[in-house]
Design a protein around this nucleic acid. Structure first.
Lengths: 117, 117
DNA sequence: ACAATACTTCTATAATATTCGAAATATGGT
DNA sequence: ACCATATTTCGAATATTATAGAAGTATTGT
């Protein structure tokens, strides 16, 4: 994943409403959820919600599939997995993270153990 | 971590320049780096860089410490670790992620294996 | 004391994102 | 065919964020 792409994904999730929508869809699992239900749960105006759903779709974090009159939106787990992998590999310095990204070959390995103040 | 806070962190990293700055500081390790060097590497105007450093500082992703005429900025690994943990627990449905967050008790566990089309 | 360096804060401007009413589109029910 | 429902797109107002020159604050060297 390129940095540009990662920034796009991060920005998409970096908004309270969109993060809430995405979390709801992750929670909903493969069943997904319609805008109607989402809007009711999160108390968002249809047009506003549609705008955010379009944004999340555009960057690939969710996917919508028309089913008769409804649209079933589902979280795209592959994309969020990639984002987490990117953060772990490139941005993370934690013990857990270092273990996973071992061998990524960056100077981050120089990191000394943080003292929990 | 609350969602509000997570959204703030994601938004902070959701900008190409700030993500680049943060990655550079992670890469730099505990040694950190001065704005002068960062600005040179990333070709950013001092005022612009200062603005982004302030933003990253405000949300706790980096920390600056004055040293004579310079300021040493360092990545705060604890914060990014928390963010990755949040994503893994609340937003992630991947195999790797599920393994780590096992027992978080959300409906995400219902997820079926994605078919790689 | 003065000049140079390292950075920040101030200020204005430009660019982008967010919100949501209203109109449009599509589908299903009667 | 017509009405209701689900959702999107349009459009316009508002709010937020980004950019960077210029001025300000420290600090070091001479």
């Amino acid at each position: 994943m390129v940095t540009l792409n990662a920034a796009e994904l991060l920005a998409a999730l970096g908004h309270e409403s969109r993060l809430a929508v995405f979390r709801l869809l992750v929670e909903a699992g493969p069943e997904g959820m319609n805008p109607g239900v989402i809007g009711e749960k999160l108390e968002m105006a249809p047009a506003t919600l549609s705008f955010h759903l379009a944004h999340l779709s555009r960057v690939g974090l969710i996917r919508g599939q028309k089913e008769s009159r409804f649209i079933r939106y589902c979280a795209d787990y592959g994309t969020i997995d990639e984002l987490v992998a990117f953060l772990t590999k490139n941005c993370c310095g934690g013990e857990a993270c270092l273990a996973k990204s071992a061998g990524s070959g960056t100077a981050a390995k120089r990191r000394i153990r943080k003292i929990t103040s």
